[in-house]
């Protein structure tokens, strides 16, 4: 039995192999450390993946700043990624703003701080909920679609066909999607922020009994430019990561329909995790000085 595969080794087996390996035959049953080899393999595979993704991102950025530029494809992808994601982002942020108003009212009323509801809603939406919720929704909708489309192109030799037609697949497939993600996610988040605040306003005025004018005044009174800008920067980072992960996993998909399905899953999972990690990093960069 290979020690790397784990499991137990009976004494008889051990004695047989002892001559070759000079292992001490000390016990009836030896239980090797089956956990280290798989953990080590996973760690090395993870490092290799990080390296490949980094190289892929570097190539993408390099092609983003060198001609030719496919502006028609960039605008097409902006429509696909941005415009068609608007309904799902609007619905998500609307209800998030409404729930936030209800929850914060419920909490703040315990120490008579109901007037802070509007401020909490707008700061939460612009700093965190707007970009993160929009990012996660777009990751599910767009990241999966990109991985599936490029993955299908890979397994049906369409990417090879691009090469034979003197077209760089990176410039033609990857760059337009990443640029579109980078540009449209902040736009989506800005709209999402407004809709989320509107949701809070609707609940505050119609359900919680706030005065319309005072709610709007409280909304803008403590809102700072940095709150909005930090959210938009996060959105740009998320847009880059979502489209990059979709393109990476699609571009490297193998093995027909199953491979494309796996690429789609990997794109959504990896971009969702990266959204949450990068959200923390950007927040720390902006607000812990």
């Amino acid at each position: 039995m290979d020690i790397a595969t784990g499991g137990s080794i009976q004494k008889a087996d051990l004695n047989k192999s002892a001559n070759a390996t000079d292992w001490p035959a000390t016990g009836e049953i030896i239980i090797p450390m089956p956990i280290f080899a798989p953990v080590g393999r996973m760690f090395l595979a993870f490092l290799a993946l990080v390296g490949r993704v980094t190289v892929f991102a570097g190539r993408t950025v390099g092609h983003m700043v060198t001609p030719p530029f496919y502006f028609r494809l960039i605008f097409k992808q902006m429509r696909e990624i941005g415009y068609f994601s608007l309904p799902v982002v609007a619905m998500t942020t609307l209800f998030a703003g409404m729930v936030l108003a209800l929850q914060s009212y419920s909490g703040f009323s315990r120490f008579s701080a109901e007037s802070a509801v509007a401020t909490v809603v707008v700061i939460s939406m612009t700093r965190e909920l707007g970009p993160v919720l929009a990012g996660l929704m777009v990751a599910g909708r767009v990241g999966a679609a990109i991985a599936a489309e490029i993955g299908t192109m890979r397994v049906t030799e369409q990417i090879d066909a691009l090469v034979t037609l003197s077209t760089n697949p990176f410039k033609y497939l990857v760059v337009p999607r990443v640029v579109a993600g980078l540009v449209t996610l902040p736009m989506l988040v800005l709209i999402g922020d407004i809709i989320g605040v509107l949701g809070g306003y609707l609940v505050g005025v119609n359900k919680l009994g706030f005065n319309e004018g005072s709610y709007i005044r409280n909304t803008f009174q403590y809102l700072e430019q940095l709150d909005v800008i930090s959210g938009l920067v996060k959105a740009a980072v998320f847009g880059f990561l979502i489209t990059l992960m979709g393109c990476y996993h699609g571009y490297h998909s193998r093995g027909g329909a199953q491979g494309v399905g796996q690429a789609t899953t990997n794109a959504v999972v990896s971009s969702s995790i990266l959204i949450l990690i990068s959200n923390y990093i950007v927040t720390e960069l902006f607000f812990t000085r």
């Binding site: 299908t152 192109m153 030799e157 369409q158």
Partner: peptide, 10 residues
């Protein structure tokens, strides 16, 4: 180049 499955862009 003519590919086995034609590889036309969908």
């Amino acid at each position: 180049m003519l590919f086995q499955g034609a590889a036309l862009f969908d």
